[in-house]
Design a protein around this nucleic acid. Sequence first.
RNA 1: GGCCCCGUCGUCUAGCGGUUAGGAUCCAUGGUUUUCAUCCAUGUUACAGGAGUUCAAUUCUCCUCGGGGUCACCA
Length: 412
Amino acid sequence: MLMLRFASSPTGDMYINDLRIALLNYIVSKQKNEDLIVRIDDMDKENNIEGKDQETLDILGLFGIEYTQVIYQSQNIRFYSAIALQLLHEKKAFSCFCSDEWLQKKRKEAQEANKPYQYDDACRNLPPELVIDNTAPFTVRIVRPDKLGFSSDTVDSFVIMTQDKTPTPNFACAVDDMLNDISMIIRNEKYLNNTSKQIHVRNQLRYDKEIEYAHLSSIENEVSVKQLLEEGYLPEAISNYLISIGTNPPKEIFTLDEAIQWFNLENISKSPAHFNMDMLQDINKKHLKNLDATELSRYVGFADAEIGELARLYIEEVATTKELKEKIAPIFAQRNISDEFTEQTVFMAQTIKNAPYFEEYDEFKNYIMKETELKENDFSKLFRILLTNAEQGPDIAEVYKYLKNYMKEIIK
RNA sequence: GGCCCCGUCGUCUAGCGGUUAGGAUCCAUGGUUUUCAUCCAUGUUACAGGAGUUCAAUUCUCCUCGGGGUCACCA
């Protein structure tokens, strides 16, 4: 069974670049009708953060990204060791005793000479007796490609097993992609240079199945997914925005399922994009409008379709669920009316309390205006303050429609 | 510095030899609205620069400039 994979290291929050990669992998997996697996690159024990793996999986779930299994690299160590050993046996890898200081010096020299650094193969042909007698810590390096072979310019004899005998990320990744029968890899452009190294590893293992690669340029000024979620952006809006970047969608607002219908990885722009909050806000607002009333009400802390309809009126003024919540909350909160209006509002509140129930706003308005002897403009202004606890807002007649049943409880 | 990717409004993009260079978003103005907002209308803003090929270049080629990535026992 061929499949696609999304790799994530549990060393920090998930950023929108990662999410975009996950989304596109998911879309392509659906289009190709292949499975998507999630791989947790947790070999770097120093930097792993407890719980980040689960956080990543939760986010994928929240965004509707389905996967068939989760693989932890830390549970595959025996494969990496066995394969490294095999390469050693076949003389396709060698032990390297070069000290860290010495390598760093070499690297620095290369940098100062404005040359790309490559390992000089100092340990490649050590006599066996020197190897066996050497008690110094060593790494395992794979033998570089032949001079005539492909990418011999860019691929040196790089480390595949570190001194503490854990695989390097490049090596582990190459092995995993082979073992999992990965057909296509969609990843960030920053891994582009690793590709030839990973292919080299597989070549040395006589794995000649070709894996298709697609590298995406990064989004600049990126933010964490968690942060966007906390600010009140809808998952469907975030994915809508991320899928739009670098492409020309047939319509502005769409769902993940719709994107699967038309998305074409080949049309995606290769130039780096800038994260644009304005655009996300606009998309979020439009998705907010598509929510049904009960869902909407949940986002503002209720579970009531009528409150949902009320909230819908306020979407015009906000971009996120957080802002929406901030608009709705005062309506049900303690009134705090400025002195300038106190006297009039107290009287109006009194009048409303004693008024009969009116289905229609106009009838209600006429009744109260008559009782209080207020002009229309003054009435509207005062009633708005009284009912919504704000001086500005949506059409008060519309607000009345959804609040008339709660009105006498709200206005105390 | 070597290598790789890229260059159209501020941003995301359409364009694939002849266009008044289009759309979206943002911004500005006007209209609707008892208010803010919405909505509608209108408007400002772009082919990085220079050579070449061609009757004709945003489009093809080269150079320059600019942006991004990479050059670890990191991910």
